[in-house]
Design a protein around this nucleic acid. Sequence first.
DNA 1: ATTTTAAGTCAGACATGCTGACACAAATAG
DNA 2: CTATTTGTGTCAGCATGTCTGACTTAAAAT
Lengths: 164, 164
Amino acid sequence: MSDLKFGGSPPETAALYLSDEALKQGLDLLFIAARNLSAQSAEALSKAGLGRAHARALHFIARRPGLSVAELLDCLKITKQSLNRVLNDLLRGGYVERKTGMQDRRTRRLQLTPAGRMLTDSIWSAQRPLMVSAFKGAGQDAVNGFRKVVQGMIREDRLRSHKS
Amino acid sequence: MSDLKFGGSPPETAALYLSDEALKQGLDLLFIAARNLSAQSAEALSKAGLGRAHARALHFIARRPGLSVAELLDCLKITKQSLNRVLNDLLRGGYVERKTGMQDRRTRRLQLTPAGRMLTDSIWSAQRPLMVSAFKGAGQDAVNGFRKVVQGMIREDRLRSHKS
DNA sequence: ATTTTAAGTCAGACATGCTGACACAAATAG
DNA sequence: CTATTTGTGTCAGCATGTCTGACTTAAAAT
């Protein structure tokens, strides 16, 4: 499996951890890890007749119950039209419910139904073992490092997109 | 920007770093980081009339010059037919060249042309600042932790897919 | 009362992936 | 040497997911 050939050993000398080679290895690793995690969920999804787009929407609805459509759009960074098709599938399938917001009655608050929770649970139990063994095998300090790095990628991107 | 609301502070107590919440935060982070990195490259790609599929192929050809079509397929985990369309775009655009292998003359060795190198360079210079500041901001120890965790995800997946 | 915002919808297009069926040349096995 | 396998390339068709653009409705904000 060619995954082995990527993201080789970490540069031991301090200056090299910011070398192009080390940074590109970081890209390799992120790509492969994201692809593998996504593959884990494929079986549970296809049983429900859903695809990856549905999985992404379900994930964020599960993570932030009661979020509005605009907030979900902001998470997924896709267009309203793209989301609506996905969302209609989830509503028709009975995985998600949509309730008019109380403060602002223009908004629709999204949350999982019991069936939606069962589905996201089965997706999660397919992905979880991979995360558990990666986290456990690496140890708490490494996990904190992982979080620090990836949050840095997200923060940098945010600053950049704010034109600051 | 709602990215802020994900991947909150790391659990401080030892047992909690393997909690479902911590593991799911890991998923959030990976998803957002991968999406943001991909977005960085969009401008350079669309100038060349190419999409994300082309970027992925270019990335691995750049990372392993002279790899065969079969090896590239194994990296990308897509079908031969899907790859061929992408590869033909890259060949016709003059970004990649294909040479018959010397040992095994059935294989085709792929490598970037000078134009391909210019393109991958411009993609990389769009993505690099994000990686640099994430790595630099987190520090070498954190980066080693990051690598350890993500390589764990890849290794676990490999073991799993070998049915061992 | 007017404008703006949040959501939903329709129509059409493009990008990216898949399956199945072939074709060809080169390597390998019997 | 013939038969099979392997690596590659291709055609046709289909499913999914994304996009732009135009328009509607309801509710909030001015």
